[in-house]
Design a protein around this nucleic acid. Structure first.
Length: 765
DNA sequence: TCCTCACGGGG
DNA sequence: GTGTACGTGAGGA
C-alpha cells in the first residue's frame, strides 16, 4: 500500500476502470486506476420500465438495475425511475445510446454527462485539486480524498513541465498555404527538425518527447496541422508516436465544426487531445483571452478537464457548474438539447425588444460627468432575486411578483441558478477586493486573471437562461432578469434626480449623471442609497473630465446609445462603439484615433479642448502624410473580418467577399467563422481581385491604396471631432489653408450642446 | 433607396 | 459540447 499526495491531473475511462493521473510536488506523474459505476435514469410508466428491464436482461448488458426516486427540477416532485448502473464506465455512452434508440419515447436523465464529470462528482474532486490517495501494489486506488475546495481562494498548482511545438516563424496559418519546418522548445532550448522526411520527423519527435517527458504540449496550429500530420505519418510508416503519456491510449481527434455563438458564426478547427498529458493549441483555445492561470481557475470551478476547458466556450462552463449543483442536490439532469434553428414565433417577436433599458443620450460634449455602474448586474439580480428556471411561475409564492411582467417567483426555495452563482460572485468579489489591497505585482496579476475568467462565466450565465438548448433554461427567467434590471435602473434614476442630478444617459446597468460641484462624499452617499433601494451593488465607475455622446450618422438630430467616448479624471480613456473599439479596424487607424483622443484627454474644459485643436489638426496632417508617403507597414493597414458563410455564398461583391473568393481560387478552403486579414491595394481597380490582397499573399502586393486609407482615416477623425462642432467644410478649408485654426477654435468654444455641424469631409458621404 | 453584411458588450 | 436580442454604419446594386 502506498500513500500519494499530489494534484489531480487527468481522469478518463479506460477498459472497465478509470485511469487517474496525479502529479506530485516533485513533478512526478503517477498513473493510477479507480473504480466508477455511473448511473443514468429512465422515466416512464410502470409497464414501460418493466419492458426496459426485460429487454436489458435478455440483452445481457453489463449493468445493474434498481428502482429509484429522484426529483425533477421543474416538476418539483419525486419521480419513480429505473436506475441503470453501468458497470463498465467506458461503455456508458454506448449503453445510453442503445436504450435511447430502443425506447425512443422514454425520457432519460443523467444520460449525457462525461465520465470525468461523474468521477469528480462522486469523489468530490475537480481538476488540479490537491489530493491524497492510497493505492495498492497494482496502483489501484483504495481511497482518494481532497481537502482542497473549488471555492478556495489560495491554491497551489503542480510544477508542470512544458514543451512548445510549432512551425518556424510561429504565427501564419499553415492550412492556408505556407508551411515551415517543425521546431520543438523545452528547457529554454529550441531544436529544429533536421529534415522533412516523414520517418525521421516521427522518430525525432519521439526522441524529444521521451527526453523532455512534458506534462503539457503547447502548440500553434497543433490541432489542425501539426498533430494530424504527425499521426498520419506515424500510421503510414507503422511507427509508434509517444504524444500520449498513457501508452495504451491513442490521440483523440474531433472534427472541425462551425457553430453559432454570440450572434456570429465561430469556427473551431479539428482538435487533437491526449491522455496523461495535455495538448493546448494556442490558435484553437479560448484561453487566449485570459491565459493559462484563468483556465486553471475555470477547470477547477467548472470541473471540466483542462484540455476541454481551453477548447470550449464559457457557456459550457457555467452549464457544467449548474450540472454539478444539480447532481450534488440530487436533482435529475435533463439532456442538453440541440435543436436546430427555428423560425421565431409571434410571441418571441413580441418580447424580443424588451431587453435591457436603453436611453437616448443627450448628444454632445459634457463636462464633469459621473458614471455609476451596477456591478455584474444580471448575475447579481439572479442571485439576489432568486431568478432561476424553476423558481419562475411557482405556485407557492403568489404574492411575490417580478416587476412589470408580473410572473410569480419563488421565495421559499433557493433556485439552482442562484445557488450556483452565489459562491462564484462571492469568490470574484474577494479577488477584486484583494486586487485593490495588495501591492505585490505577481499577486495582483494572479487575482486579475482569475477574476477576469470568472467574469466570463457570470456574463454567459444570463444568456444561458434564454438559450433554447440549455439544460436549465427558460425564456421567462431570462425576461425576469431584464425586467428587474429595468426596474432597478429606473429606481436609481429617480433617486439621483431627486438629489438634483441631471441624467445624461442610461444603458442597461449604467447611468451617466451630472451636477456641478458634486463632492466625492456625495457620490459615495448616492451609491449607498441606490444599493439600499435596489439591493444590488453599484459602483462609481468613473468621474469624467468630459464625455461625448455621438449623434447618429444617419440622422444627425438623433443620438445613439452605444457610441461614446470620454476622458476620466486621470486622463484614462473610455471608448465604446467607435472605430477604435471595432475588431475590423486597421491597427493604424485605431492608433491614430486613440492618439488623438489621448491628446484631447489632457483637456479639462471646453476652452482647453479648443486650445488643443491646432495640435490635433497637425497630428491628423502627420498621419495623412505618413499614409501618402507610403511609410505605413502593410500589417498596420490590415482590415480583419470573420466569414459569416462560405465564400461562394456571398451575394454582394464587397472587399470581404472578394478576398474570401480569392482564397477559393487559390485552392484554400475557408469555412464560415474563419477570420481573414487583408490590405486594400487598389480600391478602384476594374478587376475586383486587384483591389485587395490577403495577408497570406501580401508579398505580391506592391503598394497600398493611400487615397483609400486617407478616406478611412478621415472618417475616424470625423467621428471624434464631431462633438467639437467641426464639420466637413471647415476641415477641407483648413486643409486648403483658407481658414485659420483660430476661427475653428472659436467655433468649438461657442458650440452649444446638441448642435451638430454635419459631416467633416464632404466627399465621404 | 434598398439590401447585404459585420460588429458590439462584459473586462 | 453551440447565449439572446437589436441597433448602427458602410457600401454595393
Amino acid at each position: 500500500m502506498k500513500r500519494l499526495m499530489g494534484w489531480l491531473f487527468d481522469a478518463y475511462a479506460q477498459a472497465n476502470a478509470l485511469t487517474v493521473w496525479l502529479i506530485d510536488e516533485e513533478g512526478m506523474a503517477h498513473r493510477l486506476t479507480d473504480r466508477l459505476r455511473p448511473s443514468f435514469f429512465v422515466s416512464g410508466t410502470r409497464a414501460e420500465l418493466h419492458q426496459v428491464c426485460e429487454w436489458i436482461t435478455r440483452a445481457g448488458l453489463p449493468v445493474r438495475l434498481k428502482r429509484a426516486e429522484r426529483r425533477d427540477l421543474f416538476a418539483r416532485h419525486m419521480l419513480i425511475l429505473l436506475e441503470i448502473q453501468v458497470l463498465i464506465p467506458s461503455q456508458y455512452a454506448l449503453l445510453v445510446h442503445r436504450i435511447h434508440t430502443t425506447f425512443p419515447s422514454l425520457t432519460l436523465y443523467n444520460a449525457d454527462l462525461s465520465i470525468s464529470q461523474f468521477y469528480f462528482f462522486e469523489r468530490n474532486l475537480f481538476p488540479l485539486a490537491y489530493c491524497e490517495a492510497l493505492a495498492n501494489e497494482s496502483n489501484v486506488i483504495v481511497e482518494i480524498h481532497s481537502d482542497d475546495s473549488r471555492w478556495a481562494l489560495d491554491y497551489g498548482v503542480p510544477p508542470l513541465r512544458s514543451m512548445v511545438m510549432q512551425l518556424e516563424g510561429g504565427t501564419p496559418n499553415p492550412n492556408r498555404g505556407q508551411s515551415a519546418p517543425l521546431e520543438i522548445t523545452y528547457n529554454d532550448r529550441t531544436y529544429q527538425l533536421p529534415n522533412e522526411d516523414e520517418r525521421t520527423t516521427v522518430e525525432w519527435v519521439n526522441a524529444h518527447l521521451t527526453r523532455c517527458n512534458p506534462d503539457v504540449i503547447i502548440t500553434r496550429w497543433g490541432d489542425s496541422f501539426i498533430l494530424p500530420r504527425l499521426v498520419q505519418a506515424a500510421q503510414r510508416h507503422h511507427l509508434p508516436l509517444h504524444l500520449n503519456r498513457d501508452p495504451n491510449c491513442r490521440t483523440q481527434m474531433r472534427p472541425a465544426r462551425s457553430y453559432f455563438s454570440y450572434g456570429r458564426i465561430v469556427h473551431k478547427t479539428m482538435s487533437h487531445t491526449l491522455f496523461g498529458r495535455w495538448h493546448i493549441d494556442l490558435n484553437n483555445a479560448f484561453i487566449l483571452d485570459y491565459d493559462l492561470e484563468g483556465a486553471v481557475e475555470v477547470a477547477r470551478l467548472t470541473q471540466q478537464p483542462m484540455q476541454q476547458v481551453v477548447r470550449v466556450s464559457s457557456g459550457t462552463g457555467i452549464s457544467a457548474m449548474q450540472v454539478a449543483t444539480a447532481y450534488h442536490n440530487g436533482y435529475l439532469i435533463p439532456y442538453q438539447k440541440s435543436e436546430p434553428e427555428e423560425f421565431k414565433t409571434a410571441r418571441d417577436l413580441l418580447t424580443s425588444d424588451k431587453g435591457g433599458l436603453t436611453y437616448q443620450p443627450i448628444t454632445g460634449l459634457h463636462f464633469d460627468v459621473a458614471e455609476l455602474d451596477f456591478a455584474s448586474m444580471y448575475p447579481a439580480i439572479m442571485a439576489r432575486y432568486n431568478v432561476s428556471p424553476e423558481t419562475i411561475h411557482c405556485s407557492c409564492c403568489p404574492e411575490s411578483r417580478v416587476p412589470e411582467i408580473g410572473y410569480s417567483i419563488c421565495r421559499r426555495e433557493r433556485g439552482l441558478v442562484p445557488e450556483t452563482l452565489a459562491p462564484l460572485i462571492q469568490k470574484r468579489l474577494t479577488y477584486k477586493k484583494r486586487l485593490k489591497q495588495t501591492t505585490d505585482v505577481n499577486e495582483k496579476e494572479s487575482y486579475r486573471r482569475r477574476a477576469s475568467a470568472q467574469k466570463w462565466l457570470l456574463v454567459t450565465c444570463f444568456g444561458y437562461l434564454g438559450y433554447k438548448n440549455a439544460r436549465f433554461g427558460k425564456i421567462e427567467a431570462h425576461e425576469a432578469v431584464t425586467a428587474y434590471g429595468r426596474e432597478m435602473l429606473l429606481r436609481a434614476k429617480d433617486l439621483v434626480e431627486e438629489r438634483g442630478f441631471r441624467v445624461l444617459h442610461m444603458l442597461t446597468d449604467s447611468l451617466w449623471i451630472q451636477k456641478p460641484g458634486t463632492s466625492d462624499g456625495e457620490y459615495e452617499l448616492l451609491t449607498h442609497q441606490i444599493e439600499r433601494t435596489t439591493d444590488l451593488p453599484i459602483e462609481l465607475e468613473a468621474i469624467y473630465k468630459w464625455v461625448a455622446f455621438l449623434p447618429s450618422r444617419v440622422n444627425p438630430y438623433a443620438s445613439v446609445p452605444n457610441r461614446y467616448f470620454g476622458a476620466k479624471r486621470d486622463a484614462e480613456l473610455k471608448i465604446r462603439g467607435i472605430e477604435a473599439r471595432r475588431g475590423d479596424t486597421p491597427a493604424f487607424i485605431r492608433a491614430a484615433q486613440i492618439e488623438l483622443l489621448e491628446e484631447m484627454a489632457q483637456a479639462d474644459s471646453r476652452v482647453e479642448l479648443a486650445a488643443r485643436l491646432p495640435r490635433l489638426l497637425e497630428m491628423v496632417r502627420a498621419y495623412e502624410y505618413q499614409l501618402r508617403a507610403g511609410q505605413v507597414a502593410l500589417e498596420e493597414l490590415a482590415f480583419t473580418f470573420r466569414l459569416s458563410r462560405a465564400p461562394q455564398a456571398y451575394v454582394v461583391n464587397n472587399l470581404n467577399a472578394i478576398v474570401a473568393r480569392e482564397f477559393m481560387r487559390r485552392g484554400v478552403q475557408l469555412e464560415a467563422g474563419e477570420s481573414i486579414q487583408y490590405v486594400v491595394t487598389n480600391y478602384r481597380a476594374k478587376i475586383p481581385r486587384e483591389r485587395v490582397r490577403a495577408m497570406e499573399f501580401i508579398g505580391e502586393a506592391k503598394n497600398y491604396d493611400a487615397e483609400r486609407y486617407v478616406q478611412v482615416l478621415a472618417r475616424a477623425v470625423e467621428t471624434i471631432l464631431t462633438p467639437l462642432g467641426i464639420n466637413a467644410t471647415m476641415l477641407t478649408d483648413w486643409q486648403k489653408k483658407t481658414l485659420l485654426s483660430r476661427s475653428l477654435q472659436a467655433r468649438v468654444v461657442g458650440n452649444p450642446e446638441r448642435e451638430y455641424w454635419g459631416p467633416l469631409f464632404e466627399d465621404s458621404t
